[in-house]
Amino acid sequence: MGHSLLHQILVSNLVVPVAVAETAGIRSLTGCGVRLADDTWLRADLAVCRGEQCDGERWCVQGPPLLAVEVASPASRARDLGAKKDAYQRFGVPHYWVVDPGGDEPTVRVHELLDGVYAERVRIGPGGRHEVTAPLPIELAHEAIFDESSRWAGHWRGNSMEHTGPDLPSCEEPILVDAFGHRWPTGAEKVELEDGCPIFYGEWDERDVAIAERTYPGRVVRLDQPAGRPGTITILPGPEPAA
Rank of each mutant, 00 (worst) to 15 (best):
L10I: 03
V11D: 10
S12T: 15
N13T: 09
L14D: 00
L14W: 08
V16C: 12
P17W: 03
V18F: 13
A21Y: 02
A21L: 07
T23L: 12
T23A: 13
A24G: 04
G25Y: 02
G25E: 00
G25P: 05
R27L: 13
G31V: 04
G33M: 00
L36K: 02
A37Q: 06
D38L: 09
D38V: 11
D38F: 10
D38K: 12
D39V: 05
R43L: 13
D45E: 09
D45N: 11
D45A: 11
L46D: 03
A47C: 13
V48I: 13
V48H: 07
V48Q: 07
V48R: 04
C49I: 05
C54H: 13
D55K: 15
D55L: 15
D55S: 14
D55H: 14
G56A: 11
G56F: 12
E57Q: 14
R58H: 11
W59I: 15
V61L: 15
V61E: 13
G63A: 06
P64M: 04
P64C: 08
L66Y: 10
A68D: 12
A68T: 09
V71H: 00
V71T: 06
V71Y: 05
A72E: 01
P74N: 00
R77V: 07
A78D: 04
L81C: 03
L81F: 02
G82A: 03
G82T: 03
K84F: 02
K84P: 01
K84C: 02
K85Q: 12
D86H: 05
D86W: 01
A87Q: 13
Y88I: 02
Y88F: 08
Q89T: 04
Q89I: 06
R90P: 10
R90G: 01
F91S: 05
G92L: 12
V93R: 06
P94C: 09
P94E: 06
P94R: 07
P94W: 06
H95W: 11
H95V: 09
H95A: 12
V98T: 08
V98I: 15
V98D: 06
G102E: 06
D104E: 15
D104I: 10
E105C: 11
E105P: 01
T107D: 00
H111R: 05
E112G: 13
E112F: 04
E112C: 10
L113A: 04
L114I: 15
D115Q: 09
G116P: 01
G116T: 05
V117S: 11
V117C: 09
Y118K: 00
Y118R: 02
Y118E: 02
A119M: 11
A119G: 10
E120G: 05
E120A: 05
R121H: 06
V122T: 10
G125P: 03
G128M: 08
G128I: 08
